[in-house]
Design a protein around this nucleic acid. Structure first.
Lengths: 222, 222
DNA sequence: ACGCAAACTTGCGTGCGCGCACTTTTCTTG
DNA sequence: CAAGAAAAGTGCGCGCACGCAAGTTTGCGT
């Protein structure tokens, strides 16, 4: 449907992008990320340094891109394939949690490397912004019964909020990693907040948005 | 309370920052924003170019900073001074709308200049991220009755969502300005969506988040 | 009042993002 | 199938962000 013949042009383009991704990640783990020049990445991928940043605006973006890959489309697909009786809030939460968890499980070493360097950490956080457009589309799909494009506006806000919540969760998950801090923190009330694994952080961050999703799904005035 | 004697050091620092702000904005409107070198701004403010980006990470940031000023503290103050019987959602919405409206009214010419150049437009959007920390604090204040720091986590998510919604509103408001498009757009359903003034856009974008605020304020399981 | 430590500023060097003009490759149209 | 259009790659150069290692100012303790 979308790509009967993807075209030679597009294929070479994706190949170059993939080569740059791989080269950037490989060099970053071999030597330290700070010991990698753009020239090195470009040379390893067989292109000019100028071409390199036709694809990536920064060194960190290229490295992180190897891990981030096409997370956007996978999340959107997961939400689109929801059981239809499940609420939008649950569908979005599950999709986000699963994709980030899978990515987290896949390459521990790389993730650890990324969380170490502040620059890579920031690039990793910025990369989550990429899920917003497809998320907007799929949420708008779920809100299609709303009149006019009122649902479209709501979808944009909800998608942006989800991205914001994910960012908060990732920040909360990255902070203890950066410092040598206990995995649990005790608050004044005596309650123990695990501040735990990535999935827990994500679910905790997305939970406050559930009422907004429910209200949007059932219409503003039912 | 906070600054009985602000200290000589801090005063000079703020003076330098103010001088850089003013110089950047003045030069940007005199010549085009693209015809302003960092060296010029620094020279006009009487400091070294190197000192300049101890204060601002980019040219655009300095220019926009003159308009943005201390919007963070004003929004936080406005929310903190809410009528106590008003809901958190209303308080936050009113505070945000008023501050952005006032800033918008103040200097039409400057705003128009900013919205013209894409780089300044992006910097202006990024500047809204600055309201998140104080907003988080003041929302957490409003959710103080929640046990432990569960309210704190919720406050972070809500504040981040507000920032995201504001960004969506600003994008929707900036897009028609950039192109020569009609101020109203007709959708498939025949409904006319004004896509109107900044306050309208802001309220429309913040409305979907109101249920989340209400749920958080009354507690998850009341 | 004096001197020490921390904070701020400054000159310098490096690598990088990106605009511009040009070459090469790929797609389309007569 | 050839010729022109469109798009990707390339060389070059400018300005800028930022680390580093001084020098300078401010604030505090004794």
């Amino acid at each position: 449907m979308t790509t009967p013949p993807p075209g030679l042009r597009e294929r070479k383009k994706q190949a170059t992008r993939e080569a740059l991704r791989e080269a950037a990640l490989r060099l970053a783990v071999e030597r330290g990320p700070d010991q990698v020049r753009v020239e090195d990445i470009a040379k390893a991928a067989g292109v000019s340094p100028r071409t390199y940043n036709n694809y990536f605006a920064s060194r960190e973006q290229a490295i992180v891109s190897a891990v981030t890959a096409d997370r956007e489309v996978r999340i959107a697909a997961a939400v689109a394939a929801r059981p239809a009786e499940a609420s939008l809030a649950d569908a979005v939460t599950d999709a986000v949690v699963e994709q980030y968890t899978n990515a987290g499980e896949r390459e521990h070493e790389t993730l650890l490397l990324i969380t170490t360097r502040p620059a890579l950490r920031d690039a990793f956080l910025d990369a989550t912004a990429g899920i917003e457009p497809p998320l907007t589309a799929v949420i708008a799909e779920g809100l299609a019964e709303r009149p006019g494009d009122a649902g479209a506006h709501t979808a944009r806000v909800l998608a942006a909020s989800v991205v914001a919540a994910v960012r908060v969760a990732l920040e909360g998950w990255l902070r203890p990693t950066g410092e040598a801090r206990a995995t649990r923190s005790v608050c004044a009330g005596g309650l123990v907040v695990p501040a735990g694994s990535l999935p827990d952080q994500l679910r905790a961050a997305l939970a406050p948005l559930a009422p907004a999703f429910d209200a949007a799904e059932r219409g503003t005035q039912p």
